[in-house]
Design a protein around this nucleic acid. Structure first.
Lengths: 158, 158
DNA sequence: AGCCTAAATGCATAAATATACAACATGTCT
DNA sequence: AGACATGTTGTATATTTATGCATTTAGGCT
């Protein structure tokens, strides 16, 4: 299960570091790295990651991540390891993240920047963030989206 | 011939204003607007415009223009009609744009923002811009790219 | 633990997209 | 104008990608 999350993270990395124009090529690289999957699954993964296929001056077509997900992180060498994350829980359609004192606001800002489709809005106090989960999305999905976008959280969630 | 340029311009407009997920749909709209073409041509047009197909939260997939081409223009209600453009010529792999006095720099800046693949670099003086044409690209291609990106120039070039 | 629901995946295939090739048009240069 | 090069397009088709359906797997809950 966490197999999938790993795969998504590796997939993102492969896409940012290489210029690849078809799923079969991605598939082969993933297989080399020890993942067992089919093109069908890959297609679904790409959809989930919102990876788009774009014409490229030299390579014909290439896959690329939505501009938000990566660009900033890659450029500025920022690590999120110390976001102050403490825990995440849920009640109804409100997820609650607890952070170290004073970290809630900056953490929420980062989350906002990813425009996660599972979230309607965030509200941050001093050490607490409320996240409204979009109708139709689950707490599970939200957690997964958080991990995929902020890999550093992987060790801490669930 | 200018038929094609018109088509590309309309195509861009259609894409910015609608959320369309497959070429057949685009094709139908173009046909409604009086253009006669096939899916093959459309596919080539999309490639030329660097239109990418992106997963979308609600619509499955949508076509969208590279972020530069449009966003700014649509948002800020800027018209380029008065860029000060006067003429464009070429010698070897250097294209030379003449502008009204003082306009060269701002014009060059706008061009830079489109990251045209036909251009290696630009250099602007007071009323003159030098554009280095990328090896493998032609002056013709460059002019077309300029028109497609800055429709206002259509009347003035060639 | 055992039941239940939701997620994940493969297989097969439909759907969508890109392109080789040939034909035709357009432009350029002398 | 004629010749040559370049650009544009359609047709047919190969390639690539998405998805319905069935099955397996993983969680969540009592």
């Amino acid at each position: 299960m966490s197999e999938k999350i790993n795969r998504l993270l590796v997939l993102k990395q492969i896409i940012t570091l290489n210029r690849i124009g078809k799923q079969d090529d991605l598939l082969n690289i993933l297989k080399q790295r020890g993942f067992a999957l089919t093109q069908a699954t890959l297609s679904r993964d790409l959809k989930e990651l919102k990876v788009s296929k774009t014409p490229d001056a030299e390579h014909g077509y290439i896959y690329s991540l939505p501009s938000h997900s990566m660009r900033k992180r890659m450029a500025s060498n920022v690590s999120y390891s110390n976001l102050g994350f403490q825990s995440i829980d849920v009640s109804g359609n409100i997820a609650v993240i607890k952070t170290k004192s004073g970290y809630a606001n900056s953490f929420a800002t980062i989350i906002d920047e990813f425009f996660l489709s599972e979230i309607i809005g965030t509200l941050a106090g001093n050490d607490t963030i409320f996240l409204t989960i979009k109708e139709g999305s689950s707490f599970q999905e939200l957690k997964k989206a958080l991990i995929v976008n902020i890999p550093e959280l992987k060790e801490f969630i669930k």
